[in-house]
Design a protein around this nucleic acid. Sequence first.
DNA 1: AAGGAAACAGTACAAGCGTGCGATAATAAG
DNA 2: CTTATTATCGCACGCTTGTACTGTTTCCTT
Lengths: 180, 180
Amino acid sequence: MRKVAEAAGVSVGGLRHYFDSQRGLLAFAAQAVGRSVAARIAGHLHADLPGPERARLMLEELLPLDGNRRVEVDVWLACLVRSRIDESLADLHRNAWAAERHICRLAIASCHDLPAPEIGQEFTDTGLERRAARLHVFIDGLTLQTATYPRNFTPEDIRAAVRDELRLLTEARLPTERET
Amino acid sequence: MRKVAEAAGVSVGGLRHYFDSQRGLLAFAAQAVGRSVAARIAGHLHADLPGPERARLMLEELLPLDGNRRVEVDVWLACLVRSRIDESLADLHRNAWAAERHICRLAIASCHDLPAPEIGQEFTDTGLERRAARLHVFIDGLTLQTATYPRNFTPEDIRAAVRDELRLLTEARLPTERET
DNA sequence: AAGGAAACAGTACAAGCGTGCGATAATAAG
DNA sequence: CTTATTATCGCACGCTTGTACTGTTTCCTT
């Protein structure tokens, strides 16, 4: 609270006029980040681009590729670890998960030049959903590694990782059924 | 400190007799987890098993598949977020990263029935290292997701994800050079 | 101009934290 | 049985943190 107030150039009392509690502040930050990311991705979604490139651009909005996105990732991680002990952030947490999953669906569909999936749809166990789940895990891992070991990754490295993963996921033949 | 002391059935002063500071306690916990995981993986490494299955068993030691491994993952995540603000944990952090990367190398090599890579070796940009890096990212993402959304994943789901990833990574033809 | 609401500032309080320290109980060595 | 060492306790200090509360300034309205 005091750090935020100082960074905003106001007193802690002044900050409290806008946010009645610390959870409200963190929730607002998280929602602001979510809106910002969603807006940028929506822009890419309707852009006239080759499918794989559009997918790459959308996913890159989730990764710490510059200062802006780095702080967004930091906010996301902060909410993630906070939601482990603060139940009031669990909804936000679940929403973020569902949103990220859908972005992965959009990316996969874009790579295959399929129409963009809708929100309410049922996706269980189709090939697209399998790939989206895999991509989701990969993006989360890449986000975690690049955020916690920023010195090990240049933005070029990150972009190349996304590109390779998308290509592999597009060309791969995933087993349609799981043999035990 | 007080929580740990209570859980251990001693007073906070008694706990302090063994750990002179909180960082020491966390570092000890992290090192204990590391030793435990390393011992289990070493056991799998010298077991007489088919390559892919050995790889799977080794990687599964890093994932929250039961109560034991769940707390290990929690300790790992706690140190991860802590090292972002506590420089005294950075070394431990880097060691954990290198160790995890090497486990991924061992898993990839095991899948291809190659001899186990040594520690000091140079791995830059060979096909094995590319695959190990990808696997590393995937395992971190899977760890993060399964730890923060435990309700979404049964142990079977996690095992299947590892199996699919290993198969994909083994069969895939990775581009040997990066086209810009 | 007057009045009221909004936007602050400043301080104080209560709780939690890690930590230091002196006293006490258990235990092993002589 | 001493005695010294180890193990454990209880307490209190200092610090940080989130929050509540009371004024004070700014600004817009009629």
